[in-house]
Design a protein around this nucleic acid. Structure first.
Length: 642
RNA sequence: GCCAACGUAGCUCAACGGUAGAGCACUGGUUUUGUAAACCAGCGGUUAAGGGUUCGAUUCCCUUCGUUGGCCCCA
């Protein structure tokens, strides 16, 4: 007889050889029916697991996130069986649950094609309909290795598994079995036949190692019921509409061409957004006491040998030759900044020197990496290099974090995560220096009370870094800002300053970018707003729409007055009907539509409606100008007035 | 870079071994319009590029380039 404590604190007596399922039944038949697995002393287990001792137990249903994960993981097994029955030569590698679904990696020479998905789904449906139980078999590691001898993937998985007990799960009439630590749903029928879908297939390296064989990774999605699946599919469709690549074309902001893969062409409207971002960026940097510099794009190759880029970054660089001399196209701005520093003598009294640069860099990216504006081969970094004394490091980093927060907040980004990346394999500088630098970054984060994720081995080659990441509409994570501490570069370049005691010392250098790449930032921003840019960023802030050509003159006049007031105003005096003009303006995502007819013409007003709203508001022209200016100055996200 | 798919008019997509089509956009005309798309006509393509198979290729095969989804990397 064991005592089982439930999450609410109550204690149940468990009968001899009682299973998790039995306890669920003791609690209530409804729960027993909904149960998927249990959490026994904090560990996830099958419903069939026996309770042998006093324990804490929680029943997991599909309502729990973990329950959903288990459901998806079981669905991955079902898909694996389906695929193996269609392609008996397929070797299974690894199939976990992931966000929104699951995948299974397979070694199979014949490519699985999207046309095959329906066949796979059909097979999965049959397996689910058969509703056979998932059965767990345990054995020792040695036995498991023997059992899987000849299967390099499963043998490898066994060797990597924790603990000495290795488990297999089987289900289905044909005895499909797979190495797995579980837990699983009690039987295949617990998956909703109408709530899963095979989504895509892609290549994936074994162990993520590019030198290993490429496997086929089949992605699927699975939900509690059909309604949730449909909602998920709908959200994917919605996300596609927010894709900056699509909006960039629709809104005429930028384009890409075969003549320059990975090099963005910014159109006139895109440049308006670009310049607004930069104007704001400059104003904030002035406030934080930064100076701005500009360094050349092409510099002698020798400089890059000195900086360590040649040894550590050559594969990502472009080179050129002029007058028989080798030059490199800069992939980073730091060496140029160092030369500026060196061009005059420096005293500790000047420190910290905060030298910002909107620097255009080129980095060679393998062709499969490019992605709209967020992954390009040429981009503008909102870079800065801070030269300071060791004592100033922490306060400078805190200052940069404050600046990051202020900039992100203005764009409405509250949802980002921070990573601290440490010493990589390819690096310059001593271990001791790395330790000090890494600690300084960690201290600053802790001082600000910021949660962060540790990324061992992911630092830049010259120092550890703090990165700021944000997600795009398809939930892909992108790095924006970065703060990198560097003790090595100043030494390599022989940077010095005169200290209080009149000795020469080497300054510390902090590299930082906040928006990261302006191209990427703009791409993320477009998705963030779904193309509906706030007034201060909108390429066309308002458009005057004439009811008919009879009021064209007034419309043109109003537009002119708004332009003279510094507003970005357009006018539509075409022969279209007013309904068509409104529809067009709306699809162009213009914040304000100002309709004018004879009535407005007489009273010097406009009939205003704003993006997303059908009602109109009559407002005087001068009054509207004042309202618009106020909203632009506030960087307001809200268009409504009245 | 690797695996897979895709590339047809400015955009979104048809046609799939037998003369390449539609909607939107654009141009001209009719309409003079009161709040989410009036009507008519016209313009627009060596079907990404190159090679091969074939009487004939947009369609089948190969190569290159580009794009998309992943993997590995990264701002």
């Amino acid at each position: 007889m064991s005592k089982v404590q439930l999450p609410d604190g109550s204690v149940l007596e468990a009968a001899e050889r009682a299973t998790v399922r039995d306890i669920a039944e003791q609690i209530g038949p409804g729960l027993a029916k909904a149960a998927i697995a249990g959490r026994l002393n904090g560990e996830s287990v099958d419903l069939s697991t026996q309770i042998t001792d006093d324990a804490n137990l929680e029943i997991i249903t599909s309502k729990d996130d973990e329950g959903l994960d288990i459901l998806r993981h079981s669905c991955a097994h079902i898909m694996a069986e389906a695929i193996c029955s269609l392609w008996p030569e397929a070797k299974l590698v690894y199939g976990p649950a992931v966000r929104d679904g699951f995948y299974y990696d397979l070694d199979l020479d014949e490519p699985i094609r999207p046309e095959d998905f329906q066949r796979i789904e059909q097979k999965m449906s049959e397996i689910i309909a058969a509703d056979t139980p998932f059965e767990r078999v345990e054995m020792s590691r040695t036995e498991a290795l023997e059992k899987m001898a000849g299967d390099r993937y499963k043998s490898d998985n066994i060797q990597r598994a924790d603990g000495e007990t290795i488990s297999f799960y089987s289900h289905g009439a044909n005895g499909f079995q797979d190495l797995c630590k579980g837990p699983h749903v009690p039987s295949t029928g617990r998956i909703d036949r109408k709530a899963f879908k095979v989504m895509s297939v892609a290549g994936a390296y074994w162990h993520g190692d590019a030198s290993q064989k490429m496997l086929q990774r089949v992605y699927g999605t699975a939900w509690r019921n059909k309604k949730e699946l449909n909602e998920h599919l709908r959200l994917l469709e919605e996300a596609k509409k927010r894709d900056h690549r699509l909006l960039g074309r629709q809104m005429d902001l930028f384009s890409f061409h075969d003549e320059g893969p990975g090099f963005a062409f910014l159109h006139a409207k895109g440049m308006i957004i670009w310049n607004e971002i930069i104007d704001f960026w400059r104003s904030v940097h002035r406030k934080y006491d930064y100076e701005e510099v500009k360094t050349p794009i092409i510099l002698n190759e020798e400089l890059w040998h000195r900086s360590g880029h040649w040894d550590n970054y050559k594969e990502n660089m472009y080179f050129t030759m002029v007058d028989g001399i080798n030059y490199a196209i800069k992939p980073m701005n730091c060496p140029g900044g160092l030369l500026i520093y060196k061009s005059t003598r420096h005293s500790y009294r000047e420190f910290p020197i905060r030298m910002a640069e909107l620097g255009l860099v080129h980095r060679y990216e393998p062709s499969g990496q490019m992605h709209g504006l967020v992954r390009v081969r040429q981009f503008t970094q909102d870079d800065a290099h801070i030269f300071c004394t060791p004592e100033q490091i922490e306060s400078e980093i805190v200052g940069v974090i404050d600046l990051v927060m202020e900039l992100y907040k203005a764009f409405g980004f509250d949802d980002y995560h921070i990573e601290l990346s440490t010493k990589p394999e390819k690096r310059i500088g001593s271990d001791e220096i790395w330790e000090v630098a890494t600690q300084a970054l960690a201290n600053a984060l802790e001082q600000k009370g910021i949660d962060y994720q540790l990324n061992p081995g992911d630092g830049a080659f010259y120092g550890p870094k703090i990165d700021f990441h944000i997600e795009d509409c398809l939930k892909r994570s992108w790095q924006l800002g970065t703060i990198q501490l560097d003790f090595s570069m100043p030494e390599r370049f022989g940077l010095v300053y005169s200290d209080k005691d009149n000795t020469e010392k080497t300054p510390v250098m902090i590299h930082r970018a906040i928006l990261g790449s302006l191209e990427r930032f703009m791409g993320i921003l477009i998705e963030h707003y779904g193309g509906n840019m706030p007034l201060w960023l909108a390429p066309e802030q308002m458009r005057v729409l004439a009811i008919s050509e009879k009021t064209s003159d007034y419309a043109v006049d109003v537009c002119k007055r708004l332009k003279n007031a510094g507003l970005r105003c357009g006018v539509d005096v075409s022969g279209e009907k007013i309904g068509a003009k409104i529809a067009k303006t709306h699809s162009d995502k213009v914040p304000y539509m100002l309709v004018v007819g004879p009535k407005e013409s007489e009273s010097d007003t406009v009939s205003a409606r704003w993006r997303g709203r059908r009602e109109t508001t009559s407002v005087g022209v001068e009054q509207f100008i004042a309202i618009a200016h106020a909203k632009i100055d506030d960087k307001s996200l809200e268009l409504a007035f009245e």
